[in-house]
Design a protein around this nucleic acid. Structure first.
Length: 283
DNA sequence: TGCCAGGCCGAAA
DNA sequence: TTTCGGCATGGC
């Protein structure tokens, strides 16, 4: 059966500016799945889409009315060359930059990022994806697309009234009460996620860390991926830790404004199979 | 079968 | 202030 295409494909950008595989597989998101032909199917912002790379660029099978959403989601307005240049001058960092070329830091929904990275703690990526998928299937709004049913990430209001027992079937273990506490904090207004996007990085992380089960790492990931705070990653803790085995004199401050991107390239490089032998503590 | 995973928390040192 | 065990679960 021929693939069902529901829309005229949207052209997003030149292929060299966005690697879908690297962007979706580098560990920043958990809701995109590769098809046999190399395209990806996924959900973001309550919308499902099929996206793929072709000789002429990167395309999305989505309504034309959603073009601005997908362009923003893939962060097409940001110039990553500045960040990449900050990684020059050291062999290991340069290797990370080359390996991560094409990664873009997605502009994910703040709540989805926070909730997903609470689930991520002390967990492996396949299992994180599995739990997030189950969470969406159970409490997310259905989305019909390409003859299939996808599910939006459930808003905090959909989870705030649940009990730990309600989440038991998802097998997320000790993370369940953390997810519910975060949902209640957002719905009650105690945690204003949208307002944090404009706050200083330290302030944003501190607000996130006030939640139970949210430490420096989860707060950093939520700020980077959910609030698109590329400066919010605590380079002194994570990037330096990751780099200590390779570059003891690494100047974290030099990549401060784009530390999150740098960190993600290091993480992706160190986690990849062929580089694991050379990896340090990548956070 | 055992180690490990995008950690965090609270107690003990 | 730092260190360490415990936490729940399953991928590999």
């Amino acid at each position: 059966m021929a693939k069902q295409v529901e829309h005229t494909p949207i052209y997003l950008c030149p292929a060299e500016e966005l690697s879908l595989g690297k962007t979706f597989e580098c560990g920043q998101c958990f809701r995109w799945t590769a098809e046999a032909d190399g395209a990806y199917l996924g959900v973001a912002g309550g919308r499902a889409a099929r996206v793929w790379e072709a000789e002429g660029g990167v395309f999305a099978d989505a309504p034309e009315a959603d073009r601005a959403f997908w362009e923003a989601y893939f962060d097409l307005d940001t110039d990553y060359e500045t960040a990449r240049r900050s990684m020059a001058g050291d062999a290991y960092l340069s290797a990370c930059a080359a390996f991560g070329r094409g990664i873009r830091i997605l502009r994910q929904d703040p709540w989805e990022a926070l909730c997903s990275f609470i689930i991520s703690q002390c967990n492996n990526i396949p299992r994180i994806r599995s739990i997030v998928s189950a969470l969406c299937a159970r409490w997310g709004a259905p989305i019909g697309y390409a003859g299939r049913t996808f599910y939006a990430f459930p808003p905090p209001e959909a989870l705030a009234g649940l009990s730990d027992g309600d989440l038991t079937p998802l097998r997320m273990g000790y993370r369940a009460p953390y997810v519910l506490a975060a949902a209640r904090a957002v719905t009650s207004g105690a945690l204003a996620l949208d307002a944090l996007a404009a706050a200083p990085g330290d302030e944003a992380r501190a607000a996130l860390r006030a939640l139970p089960g949210v430490g420096e790492k989860v707060a950093s990931c939520a700020a980077l991926f959910g609030l698109h705070r590329l400066d919010a990653f605590p380079v002194d803790v994570w990037v330096r830790r990751a780099m200590s085995a390779h570059l003891p004199d690494f100047d974290a401050a030099a990549c401060g404004p784009c530390a999150g991107y740098v960190q993600q390239c290091i993480f992706y490089y160190a986690r990849s199979g062929e580089n694991r032998a050379a990896q340090g503590d990548c956070g």
